[in-house]
Amino acid sequence: MSAFASHYSYWVTVFLMATGLYIVIARGNLLKKLIGLGIFQTSVYLLYIAPGKLIGGTAPIVAEGFRVYSNPLPHVLILTAIVVGVATLALGLAIVVRIREAYGSTEEDEILAADRASGGGG
């Protein structure tokens, strides 16, 4: 019980990771895939940030009366990762818009069928 409870942030992480990956793989809609990808990436943010927090720790500013600090590095890293994630999502959405313009659909199977119909290999 205690191992489960004290590591609950990991369980959340793993849950989000699996959920995100499942959506990416199982969904045929290009937009939903991107949403899954976003959830998947979010789980990683948690993975990094959670261990940086110490119970009772504060922001790492040297001051009287504070001896326990949280690790600031993961926060900085994840700030970068969030930027990367946003950029990926934006680019992904832009490509989906273009795909919709070109094919008139955002469903993967319809797009593949359209390609097959136009004579190209898959």
Partner: peptide, 18 residues
């Protein structure tokens, strides 16, 4: 030029990000 390039880029985006 080919519209299939878009789909290829999308697929690469998904797998590359994973």
């Amino acid at each position: 030029r080919d519209r299939r390039a878009l789909l290829a880029a999308y697929q690469y985006l998904i797998l590359g990000t994973i």
